[in-house]
């Protein structure tokens, strides 16, 4: 790690005052499960580390009529222990429990999950967000078994966020404190597929702070992750669904894929075909097939197309209570 100064502000305002216009000016510390490793690898070299855990109002889950808000420093463990989330947002619970380390669930926060950097081994190996050397993509020519099957470049990493797909499916909003005001971004617009190596993969400026996530209630939802290991392991493919139902009939659906693109990937074709349907095995399977139309797998990862289909199918069956 490089040296840095450390501050633990008590208010968002204080925290904002410590940030700068460059990512190297300051880094926000919540659970630390990504930032500390990034700093150990010298991939993050902030001059100041701003601990957000001392800002009490960033922590906790609150209910507001048709919405629920989750504070950015709410830990995964707090989330899975929350009765409202458990009853109304099983897709978030399933995503959180997919992080199969109690230690990470105790440390990691919801805001940190959204803002964590990609796990692409070229990026982590210091080859930049796009993994380019001498003008050529290392990923296309190299080891891309865990990389994107959607998006078509130039970014081929996959979004590491566990909650991203669920939040996009749930039509959540991300509340952001800026130096001058607050702003709200739809979760679907928070994640960005960068076109160059200098752009971040999230729509957040270096001098801004994610404060809360606001989620509308009223959907039937589920997340299914395909993970190789039961122990701590990144998903190979994820699907998150949020359904507005009339009885057993789907009025409208949102199907969002994870770990298959640089952002959570909205599978609109799958969503459209689900409208008006009742979930059963064959409907779920057809939605899976629709979801992967247009996938452009790389040299080593066409298996992820199959895994994505299965994830969509199983997420739908889970939402319908047909898969336990």
């Amino acid at each position: 790690m490089e040296q840095f100064g450390y501050a633990s502000p008590k208010t968002v305002k204080e925290a904002l005052a410590l940030l700068g216009s460059d990512w190297n000016d300051a880094a926000l510390l919540a659970g630390g499960t990504d930032l500390i490793s990034m700093m150990k690898e010298y991939l993050a070299t902030p001059k100041t580390v701003v601990n957000l855990k001392g800002i009490k109002k960033l922590h906790g889950i609150t209910e507001h009529g048709t919405e629920v808000r989750i504070g950015a420093t709410t830990t995964l463990d707090d989330l899975v222990s929350n009765a409202t989330i458990r009853s109304q947002f099983p897709s978030l619970i399933q995503a959180a429990m997919g992080v199969t380390s109690p230690q990470i669930r105790n440390m990691g926060t919801v805001g940190g999950d959204l803002c964590q950097r990609p796990r692409c081994w070229y990026f982590r190996g210091g080859m930049g967000l796009l993994g380019v050397k001498d003008g050529k993509s290392l990923i296309l020519d190299g080891e891309n078994r865990y990389h994107a099957i959607f998006g078509g470049g130039p970014a081929y990493f996959v979004s590491a966020s566990s909650f991203g797909p669920a939040l996009v499916a749930l039509d959540a909003k991300i509340l952001i404190a800026t130096p001058t005001t607050t702003r709200t971004v739809k979760a679907s617009e928070f994640f960005v597929s960068p076109k160059d190596g200098n752009t971040r993969e999230i729509a957040l400026a270096p001098n801004e702070i994610v404060t809360e996530i606001e989620i509308p209630r009223g959907t039937t939802n589920a997340t299914y992750e395909v993970r190789h290991k039961e122990g701590l392991d990144w998903p190979l493919a994820t699907a998150s669904v949020a359904l507005k139902m009339s009885g057993k009939t789907i009025n409208s659906a949102s199907v969002v894929l994870g770990h298959v693109a640089p952002t959570p990937w909205n599978a609109e074709a799958a969503a459209q075909m689900l409208a008006g349907k009742t979930i059963n095995e064959s409907v779920a399977e057809a939605a899976g097939a629709a979801a992967v139309k247009g996938a452009t797998p790389l040299s080593q990862n066409d298996y992820k197309v199959q895994l994505t289909k299965v994830a969509v199918k199983r997420a739908l069956l889970t939402a319908a209570g047909l898969l336990t």
Partner: peptide, 20 residues
């Protein structure tokens, strides 16, 4: 291309957990 081990860590150099 890089001539290196990509998974020289305990995250992608995968070992079984107690539940695997």
């Amino acid at each position: 291309t890089l001539g290196r081990v990509l998974n020289a860590d305990m995250e992608f150099y995968k070992l079984a957990s107690i539940n695997d």
